[in-house]
Design a protein around this nucleic acid. Structure first.
Lengths: 145, 145
DNA sequence: GCTGAGTGCTTGCAATAGTTAGCAATGGCG
DNA sequence: CGCCATTGCTAACTATTGCAAGCACTCAGC
């Protein structure tokens, strides 16, 4: 359990608490956790569960996802875009389709990090049709897994 | 800790495992968790931490977030129509990339409307790699899984 | 028949999460 | 000054997670 680095989490929580100008005990009470435990969390002595993080986030009026990111439960990609969350939450997609979409999304973002300009080229038009077809056809492939 | 409803999580993991056609021991081994514990998780007797969920998800080749949703760590509040708006609102993507993503997304959904909730098969793993490659290198024409 | 490999589960236990009771320090007020 | 309220933390404890050792069962091969 100590494998995850939670030092940032505690500092982050204390920081948010100080910004909100509430005491440790007040936050613990409104979060529904014991104040010694919150103290331990802030000092990095404990690694709280996601449920505790939810409670703390709610009491701090911040998103639980922000604390998950700090705790290493969620990747930082959830901090700055709604696309991954929306894709993951879409029940009309299979898990594999979600993975495919997210990987395409991330490769797009990597592209744009390297060349931020956004010229539309005919090559990209072709990639559009090709990507759609490729995603549809592999179902017919024989399984060797 | 027992406040979160984790019955769906265990069924979901077993379902994904069966779809992947691997035994409980095989999954436990590749996930790096003990097989009795995985058995307990699948039967809903234990509520695993996010770190364990990460390990299981990785071994199942699905996203950790999918398991977080099942475990109640992430909300399903993202809804089933958040993807288009999230994609369109993502400023890190070009307009063309947004179109590509949305068209793939919509073709996925059409697929699932015709044959709903097909369980993930190892064949779809190949589709993931192929679709990602096609999107990244649109000038290549050869697509052999 | 037996043996070996694989299967999922039982049981007991160690480690860690999270709580309770209480301490020491600080600040405000009479 | 003393008293009270608030503060964050300590130490002991309880509850739960996650693991190791092993069981009972199935199946295939001899």
């Amino acid at each position: 359990m100590a494998k995850l680095d939670v030092r940032n989490l505690g500092e982050y929580i204390r920081q948010q608490r100080n910004s909100a100008q509430i005491s440790l005990r007040q936050l613990a009470k409104s979060a529904g956790v014991s104040n010694p435990y919150l103290s331990q969390i802030e000092r990095g002595l404990r690694k709280p569960s996601a449920e505790i993080l939810q409670q703390i986030a709610k009491a701090l009026r911040i998103s639980a996802e922000a604390l998950y990111v700090q705790a290493g439960i969620l990747d930082e990609r959830y901090g700055d875009s709604d696309v991954p969350s929306a894709v993951m939450g879409d029940e009309a997609l299979t898990e594999r389709q979600k993975q495919v979409l997210l990987e395409i999304y991330e490769s797009f973002r990597r592209e744009n990090d390297e060349s931020p300009a956004e010229p539309a080229t005919p090559a990209e038009t072709g990639s559009r049709a090709r990507a759609a077809r490729a995603a549809r056809e592999p179902r017919k492939t024989s399984t060797t897994g």
